[in-house]
Design a protein around this nucleic acid. Structure first.
Length: 134
DNA sequence: GCCAACGTTGGC
DNA sequence: GCCAACGTTGGC
């Protein structure tokens, strides 16, 4: 089972928008980066969990947990998407600033210089640390 | 709105 | 296959 972090701009699609969807499930589409496409196509498995991350907003950060309920399938050629379902929204936002300041999260892919990938892998250790911050 | 960083495009 | 130009991401 894999862990991921998936970015979305909340003014376009927020965790509250996901909560309002039927069955709280929605295709995660629009990825237009080949590296991320390959992860979606080859690495994402049903049951994988991901942090829902709000980007390009007043306070970027992790706002909740989602689960992959449908593995990679074609969107429009040559791109892929997955279906995600809301597990829960966090009681509070865990900000990028807070993540950046935490020693155990120093090596997170999210924090790497110049990393602009809309989806990044998360290790089990990082997953646990962030969960404990809530 | 700025700009650093990175990806993509396309002429050669 | 190189690389300049351009487009996009996303924090600040």
């Amino acid at each position: 089972m894999n862990y991921w972090l998936m970015k979305s701009e909340p003014n376009i699609f927020s965790i509250d928008d996901l909560a309002k969807r039927p069955n709280q499930t929605e295709p995660w589409n629009g990825v237009r980066n080949y590296q991320v496409r390959n992860w979606l196509r080859d690495e994402f498995k049903v049951g994988d969990q991901a942090f829902f991350y709000h980007s390009s907003c007043e306070t970027p950060g992790v706002v909740g947990i989602i689960e992959i309920v449908k593995a990679g399938y074609p969107e429009v050629s040559p791109w892929y998407c997955v279906d995600v379902k809301l597990i829960r929204k966090f009681k509070r936002l865990i900000s990028l600033t807070e993540i950046r300041q935490h020693p155990a999260l120093r090596n997170m892919r999210l924090l790497q210089k110049g990393s602009r990938l809309s989806i990044t892998p998360v290790t089990m250790e990082e997953w646990k640390v962030i969960l404990a911050l809530e």
